[in-house]
Design a protein around this nucleic acid. Sequence first.
DNA 1: TGCCTTTGTCAACAGGCGTTGGCAGATGGG
DNA 2: CCCATCTGCCAACGCCTGTTGACAAAGGCA
Lengths: 189, 189
Amino acid sequence: MTRRKSRPTKSDRTREAILAAARTLFAEKGYEGATVRDIAGAANIDPSMVIRYFGGKEALFAQAAELNLRLPDLKNVPEDRWGEALVRHFLAIWEGESGINGLPVALRSAASNELAAERLRGIFTDQVAPALAKVAAGGPSTTAGLVSSQLLGLAFCRYVLKLPPVVALSSEQIVVEVGRVIQGLLKPG
Amino acid sequence: MTRRKSRPTKSDRTREAILAAARTLFAEKGYEGATVRDIAGAANIDPSMVIRYFGGKEALFAQAAELNLRLPDLKNVPEDRWGEALVRHFLAIWEGESGINGLPVALRSAASNELAAERLRGIFTDQVAPALAKVAAGGPSTTAGLVSSQLLGLAFCRYVLKLPPVVALSSEQIVVEVGRVIQGLLKPG
DNA sequence: TGCCTTTGTCAACAGGCGTTGGCAGATGGG
DNA sequence: CCCATCTGCCAACGCCTGTTGACAAAGGCA
């Protein structure tokens, strides 16, 4: 049926172009706001190809919203820098310096699209909670929930809502201020 | 033109029914997800009436998303309870115990709808920032931004995303945990 | 050369959207 | 009672959506 070569075929390249355009537009305008025609246009392709390559808009979104946070193992980080390390990691993701681009996609649509919400909850359950369970005092999932609430709130205000004073903050300020808060949640007292 | 009576006319009652249905559905499914036909159905009315009463979907949404947070004057609150007071106030809003129902409407759509986002930014500028400016140390709007990020993150995870461990928290736990964080932002050290 | 798979375009579909205008009862003041 | 206004339903509009199937050039293998 399909050719099984190792070299990238033409098909692979347009497939990647569609996926890149989808990620950009989904992150910008959300699931319902980004139409198949928009995405196809941004990828210089016919809308029907989007369906042929991915099976449908939902499947395309699911693939565009896939992500591995690659959270650092906090056991390799000094105890008093856990908050700082987490904030730095998430900032790098949001500033696009990590190659992890599914998080903006998922967060933008999570409020109005159940598929995106489920994806975000899955990321919490499968990635955030386990990573924090190893180091958190108290109810581990409770702590993980509060930490996520803090980090998502920051991302929402800075990158989605674009609240001016939060946008104006420097990365270093955020690392210090929010890092301190998260440090307090992980190691109270 | 219009009758100027003090007693509620029939028109007033259906107008209120439409508005109530709109608030519920907008808060549940977001701006694009809640259709005029849905809202009309929930209000037992014809879709065309929604347009006649409010001029259009956008205007209806603008009205449904109106809100006055009625933030407490922190000068009447002991300094060491500012965080607690703020968290209690916001929790009451989100639990529907305050009669302020525009915040869920605005937050649900803010990520995918510019009108809702602008509304939320306006609430920050006109209501949150001024209320905190009177008491915050350091850059007042910076502090207000970080506090909002915390409160919106909590609301997002608990009421919009419905992250299980955050939903499971009791009101009292939230008041204690998040109250402490916000207290720390308002009065560092 | 001839052929079959791939890569892509085009036109069209069915369905849902917000919105409009016309018409039918109800209502209430003169 | 009569007429004007109000309240509401109905059918339809133009538009945009995701998706489909038919058909045309391109490209490698025999």
